[in-house]
């Protein structure tokens, strides 16, 4: 069982994850071949691109977005996403596994640092859950699938935290941790979690999607 979930199933998860991202990328470029003229830009155009005035206008324009309307949520989301990517990549135990398997590894945080990052992520996840339950306007557009997606995202970290601290049945928790990570990788490109890719594509390349960049592509 352990050999299967650590071996073939892990390969399947990575192939589906990266293959899915490439598929979505190709589909995006195929569906957005049309170009459109950009009529409106939130950026100041009157002065030089990097002038103080231009930067000030850009900053003010940001305040009209969610950064200005919900600053706490913005900070919370930013912290959550940083932890989401940084923690598993720079985790010592993961890098040791890489080293043992392929002889390669990258720099890692100390185990106590990643422990703190995991707790921060879990707290953010819990606040997202409470927000979905108690904030009326968020609850109104929340389906059971949103709770499932939040659970799929948080599960690898919760089980990883429990495995690291060796709570309950260590072996069962660690198996659950590996499986949870694999499930997240497999579903990521095909569900709402795909925003890890689509956020950048839509917001920088599509002109009509409140582009941060000079996107001129159109559906």
């Amino acid at each position: 069982m352990f050999d299967f979930i650590r071996g073939p199933l892990l390969w399947v998860a990575f192939i589906v994850f990266f293959g899915g991202l490439v598929f979505q990328l190709l589909q995006f470029f195929t569906l957005t071949r049309k170009k459109e003229r950009l009529f409106l830009s939130v950026h100041g155009k009157t002065k030089g691109r990097w002038s103080i005035e231009s930067m000030r206008q850009w900053f003010e324009s940001l305040l009209t977005t969610i950064i200005g309307t919900h600053p706490m949520m913005t900070i919370l989301t930013l912290i959550f996403h940083c932890c989401l990517f940084v923690t598993p990549i720079f985790l010592l135990a993961h890098n040791i596994l890489l080293d043992e398997s392929w002889g390669i590894s990258i720099w890692s945080f100390s185990e106590s640092t990643t422990d703190i990052l995991t707790v921060v992520l879990l707290v953010c996840g819990a606040l997202f859950l409470l927000r979905r339950i108690f904030v009326r306007r968020v609850r109104a557009i929340t389906t059971a699938f949103d709770y499932l997606i939040l659970f799929i995202t948080v599960a690898p970290f919760l089980s990883g935290y429990m495995a690291y601290h060796q709570w309950f049945h260590y072996k069962a928790i660690l198996f659950a941790h590996i499986l949870a990570g694999e499930v997240m990788l497999i579903v990521a490109p095909f569900t709402k979690l795909g925003h890890m890719l689509f956020f950048f594509l839509y917001r920088f390349l599509i002109g009509s999607e409140y582009s941060f960049g000079q996107g001129t592509r159109s559906w």
């Binding site: 352990f2 040791i96 043992e100 260590y170 072996k171 660690l174």
Partner: peptide, 23 residues
């Protein structure tokens, strides 16, 4: 590496003995 390769390597080959970090 010496400990990990020696211990886990043998446990893997022999298909017995601990192979998980916390074991």
């Amino acid at each position: 590496r010496a400990f990990h390769r020696q211990c886990i390597g043998c446990h893997r080959r022999e298909k017995r003995g601990p192979r998980l970090c916390g074991e």
